[in-house]
Every structure is written in C-alpha cells, then in structure tokens.
C-alpha cells in the first residue's frame, strides 16, 4: 500500500476558525459573566452528583481490592471517578473535596505505575473523601484538613512518584 502521507504542513481552514472570527462576537467580559452565571446555576446539583459518584467509587474500590489482575480495570475506574469528584469539588470551590480526591488520584496513579494494589490505602482515601464531602465538614471541619492530608500523604508517598504532577 503506497504511503501517500506528505511532509508538507499547511494551515487548513476549518468551519470553527471561519465562524469564530466573524461578527457578531461576544466579548471576553460578557462571556465570563455569562459563563459564571451558568456554572452557578448548576451548583444545587453538586451534592447529588458527588453522592452518586461516591457510590460508584465505593463499588469500584471494593472490586479493585478483590481483583489481583494487573492492570486492574477497577483501579482504572476508581481513578476516573475520583478525577470526576476532584473536578466537581474544584468547580464549586469545595477545597477539601478537591484536595482529598486529588490525593486519591495520585495514589491510584502511583499504584498503577508500580504495578501494585493497596486496598488499605484506597479504602482510607475513600473514607476520607466521604468525610470531607459532607456539608458539615465544609462548615466546621476544614481546619482538620491539614492533619487529614498529612496522613493521606504518607500513604501516597509509600510509592515512588513516576513523573511530575503538574496539576
């Protein structure tokens, strides 16, 4: 089969670039205001979303602990779910949820890279995530976050850092 790929690089117009440069445009300030309003309108759904994701995460962590195969598909699933929780927490300014979920992601990332399974560390992260996800923790408990993160950090640092975390 002939290789008809070329070495030439040229700018290819796309419908996106053509339309986006036409008037009427939306200014940056107007777009930010409209975007922030749109995000704020979704905030009432936050707790329900996180609750649903935590239930799925609970199931994935449970299965990951029982599955000794590698790569562990349930570990991958848990990584994706904790990522989603992390992003939701960050979107709606739930700092503790964001930080604990990010630690959970980092733990699973390191375990995957090391070819290891550590159900104790995963379960501990899950319990911490359930704790910080409650409205009561956001109201009264964020002062305890430092101590909690110190304990989680030890679990994560038990495994080598495969590459830089730049998030």
């Amino acid at each position: 089969m002939p290789n008809n790929k070329t070495n030439e690089a040229r700018i290819v117009p796309t419908r996106f670039t053509q339309i986006a440069r036409q008037k009427p445009t939306i200014s940056r300030d107007a777009a930010i205001e409209a975007g922030q309003t749109a995000v704020t309108e979704l905030e009432p759904e936050y707790l329900e979303w996180v609750d649903g994701l935590l239930r799925e995460l609970w199931s994935a962590v449970d299965k990951a602990g029982q599955d000794v195969t590698f790569p562990n598909p349930h570990g991958e699933e848990a990584y994706g779910l904790s990522n989603q929780i992390r992003n939701l927490g960050a979107t709606f300014d739930y700092e503790a949820v964001t930080i604990v979920a990010d630690s959970f992601c980092e733990l699973i990332h390191r375990l995957n890279e090391a070819g290891r399974n550590d159900s104790h560390a995963m379960q501990t992260h899950l319990n911490a995530l359930r704790l910080v996800s409650t409205p009561a923790f956001k109201r009264d408990g964020e002062g305890e976050l430092g101590a909690l993160m110190g304990a989680l950090r030890q679990l994560v640092d038990h495994y080598p850092e495969p590459d830089g975390n730049i998030g």
Binding site: V12, F16, T17, A20, R28, I32, G35, A38, T91
Partner: peptide
C-alpha cells in the same frame, strides 16, 4: 480542569485566531 469560563474563552480565542 476545572474549566473556568475565562480560561476556556481564552483558549477558544487563541485557537480561532492563531491557526
């Protein structure tokens, strides 16, 4: 992530104006 409206707008503007 998380996506911020300003961050997303800036990137879309960049992609549109700097093909």
């Amino acid at each position: 992530l998380p996506l911020s409206p300003g961050g997303l707008y800036d990137r879309l503007s960049w992609v549109a104006n700097h093909p």
